[in-house]
Design a protein around this nucleic acid. Structure first.
Length: 420
RNA sequence: GUGGCUGUGGCCUAACGGUCAAGGCACCUGUCUGUGGAACAGGAAAUUGUGGGUUCGAAUCCCAUCAGCCACCCCA
């Protein structure tokens, strides 16, 4: 047992896993850029207050999952439990409201939540995140949803499902919530203990309860979609119209609710198979009141967050092939201490010529060739006393085993020629 | 925060409560004094997660604790 072990809920992403991560990061960046999103990086920690306000005091994330502490200067700070609050802070602080609308941003990086780890759930995990700011039209909702979908689609994910719902706005939601609470109070004896608590704390959450006894109560509950105000209803209808016109398969899920307070109108999730009980690989929605809440000019916004560990798990579960990370083209082996400096010089020359190269660091020629083999280099250069004496080097093609003698000065050129 | 299952070299696995915890993979070296991928031989690598307890004797039984996995809660 090692003296130091990684902390609960954290993980080491080892070299063998990196091809998945690299492929995922590349796809996210490629597609986000192609869709007009620009990258923004914000700090991993912020004032705790920002998350309290932005995410919502009453949410589980803020109440019991935040890594919040006092720093050496006495500031109350927290490791970010999500991206959006920090991105909104940056938008306001950097005067980005003067940018032409829409402002389309994406981020990638670590997120921290003190939760009980399980399949697809960690304390430090990674998300990619996207936001569109300054547009009220559901076209922005559509664009955000398409970005999320197309990233997974381009990765080759099978059995994806789009779940869509609307949670209304500050005008219609409170009325609906009281109707819902009333319905639950009328059936107080039939519902599970968790739901009794939920009705008091966050009534919308009763809708995604999985207890069998609650299912008939949920089925008989008033539907949010039937109680949207005119504006919210029109927004939702328009969004659905776009999705249908594009032939995007989606499920209207009247039980879809979000765990963060700032959502208004549209909420959605993307589900995929392969991560145990965690079906959601991505979740998001509209948050029209957030920027104003954080002290900015009233600005509508819509965005999503996607779990990267979960995406990697789906890739592996669905046997999605990812390209191997490129290895250095050339491996340099040498014989005898006197040749080491010539070998090092050759290494430098190859690198200056733009060829990926690495050098053996001792051992018999046999073991150096073993290293070369394992490094997946296409060519091995052998530098020995004999070669140095004649100003040449032995060039070995690792796939065929064929060897030739090449002039020391023009090795890079010779290698490029052999590449075809 | 709650519950279930599981902890043996880096990884996978074996060992009726009884000498020195065994094997495979991987790693290093050699057979091959200057030639990889195979084979063979050898080597390094474990106070059996940790701490207690029961016992003449514990990897094995009991308790606690930590961690991992899974599920709830919640979320990505």
């Amino acid at each position: 047992m090692p003296k130091y072990a990684r902390l609960k809920g954290t993980q080491d992403i080892l070299p063998v896993e990196q091809p998945y991560w690299e492929h995922l990061r590349m796809r996210v960046a490629e597609i986000a850029r192609a869709y007009g999103f620009e990258r923004i990086d914000t700090p991993i920690f912020e004032l705790t207050e920002l998350f309290n306000r932005g995410v919502g005091d009453a949410t589980d994330i803020v109440e019991k999952e935040m890594y919040a502490f006092k720093d050496r200067g006495g500031n109350e700070i927290a490791l970010r439990p999500e991206f959006t609050a920090g991105v909104m802070r940056a938008y306001i602080e950097n005067g980005m409201q003067v940018l032409p609308k829409p402002v389309k941003l994406y981020s990638i990086g670590p997120i921290f939540r003190h939760e009980q780890p399980q399949a697809g759930r960690y304390r430090q995990f990674h998300q990619f995140n996207a936001e569109i700011l300054g547009v009220q039209d559901p076209l922005a909702d559509l664009e955000i949803m398409l970005l999320a979908w197309d990233i997974y689609d381009s990765l080759g994910f099978q059995s994806l499902a789009f779940q869509v719902h609307s949670t209304g706005c500050p005008i219609c939601r409170p009325q609906y919530v009281s109707l819902l609470a009333e319905h639950y109070r009328a059936h107080a004896d039939a519902i599970c203990d968790d739901c009794k608590r939920r009705v008091a704390v966050n009534p919308l959450r009763v809708l995604d309860c999985k207890q069998p006894q609650c299912q008939p109560i949920i089925a008989g509950a008033p539907k949010m979609l039937e109680h949207l105000c005119g504006e919210c209803a029109a927004h939702f209808t328009k969004l659905r119209g776009y999705l249908e016109h594009l032939g995007k398969p989606h499920t209207i899920n009247p039980r879809l609710v979000r765990g963060l307070d700032y959502y208004t109108k549209t909420v959605f999730e993307v589900w995929a198979e392969g991560i145990g009980a965690q079906a959601a690989v991505c979740g998001g929605g509209r948050y029209d009141g957030l920027i104003e809440l954080l002290g900015g000019h009233p600005t509508p916004g819509v965005g999503f967050a996607a779990g990267m560990e979960r995406a990697v798990m789906v890739m592996q579960a669905q046997h999605i092939a990812v390209p191997p990370l490129p290895a250095p083209l050339v491996f340099i082996a040498f014989l005898g201490d006197a040749t080491a400096r010539h070998a090092a010089q050759l290494l430098r020359a190859l690198r200056q010529a733009g060829l990926g190269a690495q050098i053996a660091m001792g051992g018999s020629l046999r073991s150096q060739l073993r290293q070369a083999d394992k490094s997946a280099a296409r060519f091995t250069l052998i530098v020995g006393e004999d070669e140095i004496a004649q100003d040449v080097v032995t060039l070995r093609d690792m796939a065929t085993g064929e060897q030739e003698t090449a002039p020391l000065n023009g090795v890079a050129q010779t290698i490029v020629e052999r590449l075809g």
